[in-house]
Amino acid sequence: MRRWPPWAIAFLVVQILVPSWQLTKPRPARFGWQMYAAGPPASGFSVVGRDGSVTSIALEEYIVRKRDDLDVLRYLPPAICARTGAASVRYRDAAGHASAEIPCRR
């Protein structure tokens, strides 16, 4: 067997270590070949108005490309709050069953 140059060994090691490390994180994680490995962390977003009314959100107005690995809970609630002036943002959890709510900061 001919010896591999250091760059090739490093390339393969990175290609094994990074996806292995990503397996320890919630799925789907990026750079781990986790294609269609799990659903999104949240779905079914809606806004709860100050009067208690609930209006569903069209995600296409906020997201250009829906993916299961988007950090939707980090980026979407602040944007939805700022744009709608809602009291809170409601969503369904990863399993799609229970609903949770994030209050909007004033």
């Binding site: 990503q22 397996l23 799925r27 789907p28 781990g32 070949w33 986790q34 294609m35 490995a37």
Partner: peptide, 8 residues
């Protein structure tokens, strides 16, 4: 890794 990540 595509296979391994689907084991959940």
């Amino acid at each position: 890794f595509a296979a391994a990540s689907k084991i959940n």
